[in-house]
Simulated assay, not measured.
Amino acid sequence: MTDAMTNIADVAMEQMLATIGDFQKTANAMTGWTQPDYMVAVTRMNTEFADFVATRIRENLKTQTEAAQSRSAMELGEIQYRFFTTAVEQYFGEVGRQARLSQFALEEWTERKGTG
């Protein structure tokens, strides 16, 4: 993996974790009557993230199988390139999904609190 791809993946993960952290901090300030909404949002975020992890594991296993069956260095390089390109696209997609879920939950919360 190139340094640039490593940096992109690191930045994507940091942004996703920061978004989740911000959402959790805001959720801690919620009153009891909004707690069910928070739990629904967190459950959805966790489900989405678990699906993302499962997809990445499947991609990893698929790539390992393809790499083991490759017949040349060129073919192996193409397999690795596809894997890393797909990974970066999926990580960015997941950051976007998590950000949208967080934004939706925060908008719902502020509307219920009368601050939106």
Rank of each mutant, 00 (worst) to 15 (best):
N28W: 11
D37I: 14
I8S: 08
T47S: 14
T19L: 09
V40C: 04
D51I: 09
Q15F: 05
T43G: 06
V11P: 00
M16Q: 06
T26I: 09
A50V: 04
Q24H: 03
T31C: 04
R44S: 03
A9M: 13
M45C: 11
A9E: 12
F52S: 04
I20D: 05
M16H: 05
A18T: 02
I8M: 12
Q24K: 09
A9D: 06
A41W: 10
L17C: 11
M13R: 08
T19K: 05
M16L: 10
A27P: 03
I20H: 10
I8A: 10
T31Q: 12
A41F: 12
Q15E: 09
G21C: 03
E14C: 08
M45I: 06
W33K: 14
T47Q: 10
M30P: 01
D22R: 12
Q24E: 06
Q24V: 00
D10G: 03
N7F: 03
M45N: 06
V40F: 11
W33Q: 11
M13W: 11
A27F: 12
G32A: 07
E48V: 10
V42H: 05
E48Q: 07
F52G: 06
M30S: 14
F49W: 10
D10S: 13
Q24F: 02
M13V: 06
W33I: 15
K25C: 00
D10W: 04
T43Y: 07
A27S: 13
M13S: 02
G32P: 04
I8V: 01
G32L: 14
R44C: 13
D22I: 05
Y38R: 06
K25P: 00
A27L: 03
R44N: 04
D22G: 13
D37T: 12
L17E: 13
G21I: 00
D10A: 02
T47A: 13
M39N: 08
M16E: 10
M16C: 11
T34F: 15
Q35I: 10
A41S: 08
A12M: 14
A41Q: 03
A50D: 05
Q24D: 13
R44W: 08
E14K: 12
V53Y: 04
M39H: 04
D51E: 14
A12I: 01
N28T: 06
I8N: 01
Q15C: 15
M13G: 07
Q24M: 10
T34H: 08
N28A: 09
A9T: 06
A29G: 12
E14H: 06
A50N: 03
M16A: 12
V11Q: 09
R44Q: 14
N28L: 09
G32S: 02
F49P: 00
A18W: 00
V42T: 07
M39I: 11
T47V: 09
